[in-house]
Simulated assay, not measured.
Amino acid sequence: MQWFIVLSLGLAVFAPLSNALLRFQCSQLVIQRLDPLVNPGMVPSTHVHQIVGGSFNWTVATMHPKKDMPGESTCTTCSFSEDFSNYWTAVLYFRARNGTYKRVPQASQINGATGGITVYYMQDALYDQQQKSKVKAFPPGFRMFTGDVQARTKEQVARFRQNTYTCMKNAGTREPESLDFPKTTCAAGIMINQRFPTCWDGVNLDSPDHMTHMSYPETGTFESGGPCPATHPVRVPQVLFEVVWDTKKFNNKADWPTDGSQPFVWSFGDATGYANHADYVFGWKNDALQRLMDTPCVVNCPAANPKTQTTANMNKCSQNPVVDENIDGWINELPGGYQAQYH
């Protein structure tokens, strides 16, 4: 029998290995104001994003479903060299007491990687140690979105409670999770978790809102191992982003707002944290993802003989921003003209 370690609720748990759970790092590709999924063709897009994955030509600011992501990418920032998917989120900023903003860098979870995020593909939620569900890999041209950029209250974010924050005490902290920004300093940074739906309608590669072609299990929770609803009968891998924002340099309370409120804000102005969201465009080469999901393996999946690359090659695959603007220095407003919104 094979075994693996599941990090669940901050504890290491030994469990029998049934099927696949992929966990890998992607270095930073580019940070800029482009969003070919939600704002196709708009240069610049409404707010700043951090993007990882395949080096698709982001200068065109659009991704047609018939585009061959692996074929049009020369490299990828992900450790699996057959993964030319694109993964992106908004960018976190710190708002100082004097009202100016500074971009918060991302911290890699592996030594030597440049920023980026950690990506999971699972047959069941991370909490399920058996990983027993049979899943179908996404088809070419597939894309999806999770979250609500307009959410500013707990009531508005209720349907997206799978997108959370963890105030990290150390590198292994995974709980507790909250739906809004942490209210105190976090010794090892702030981790966001973004869990995408696991049930597909089996027909549409996308939908107008980039969400309705997807669903969570019919029990309505991302943790559930329940069946997919009849409207969305095809179970696909659970995609999870872990992004660690290196907030340590901003932990001096003397720089925080005088009323003691938390100082972090998303690049589109949300200072509550409720508008946490993420984008995904599938781009694995040929049947590489299906092969991995069908093979009993964990993390690096040696049994499936995946093609991997060095961290140096991951870091080398980066792009210069298309949009020429100051996103890193101390600025008086967020790129795109946003200010912090607390409600």
Rank of each mutant, 00 (worst) to 15 (best):
Q123T: 11
A125D: 14
Q150S: 13
A158S: 10
P139I: 00
A107F: 04
V149T: 13
N111K: 14
R152V: 12
D128Y: 08
K136N: 07
V104Q: 07
A96P: 00
A107E: 12
N98H: 12
N98E: 14
F142M: 07
P139L: 12
G141H: 07
V135S: 07
G115T: 05
G115L: 03
R103Q: 15
R152W: 03
A158I: 04
Q109E: 15
F138I: 06
R143K: 13
D124W: 01
P140D: 14
F138H: 13
G115H: 02
G99P: 11
Q109V: 01
Q129V: 12
G141W: 06
P105C: 09
A151M: 06
N98K: 06
Q129S: 11
A125H: 14
A137G: 10
G147W: 05
N111R: 14
V119W: 09
G112R: 08
K134W: 03
N111V: 13
R143T: 03
V135W: 03
G99W: 12
K132Y: 10
R159L: 11
Q130R: 07
G141F: 09
M122C: 10
P105E: 08
M122V: 00
M122G: 14
K132F: 04
Y127A: 05
T118C: 00
P139R: 08
N111W: 12
S108D: 02
Y127L: 05
I110F: 00
Q150H: 10
R143Q: 13
Q109R: 09
T153S: 11
G112L: 02
F138G: 02
P139E: 08
G116A: 09
Y121W: 15
I110T: 14
N98F: 05
F138Q: 11
A137R: 04
Q106A: 10
K132M: 03
E155D: 12
Q130V: 08
A113V: 09
P139F: 02
A113W: 02
I117K: 09
K154S: 13
A96Q: 07
A96K: 09
E155I: 08
I110R: 08
V119K: 06
T100I: 05
Y120F: 15
V135R: 04
K102A: 14
I110G: 09
K102N: 03
M122E: 13
D124G: 13
M122R: 10
Q109N: 14
A113D: 04
D128H: 15
S133L: 07
A96E: 09
K136W: 00
T100D: 14
K134G: 05
Q156Y: 04
A137M: 05
A125C: 04
K134V: 15
M144I: 06
Q156N: 00
S133M: 08
Q106P: 00
A137F: 02
F142T: 02
K102C: 10
G115A: 07
A113P: 03
R103V: 11
G115D: 07
A137S: 15
L126P: 01
Q131L: 06
Q109K: 09
F145R: 10
R159F: 01
Q150P: 00
T114G: 01
V104F: 02
Q129M: 10
Q150M: 10
V135L: 03
S108C: 06
F142A: 05
G115R: 04
D148Y: 04
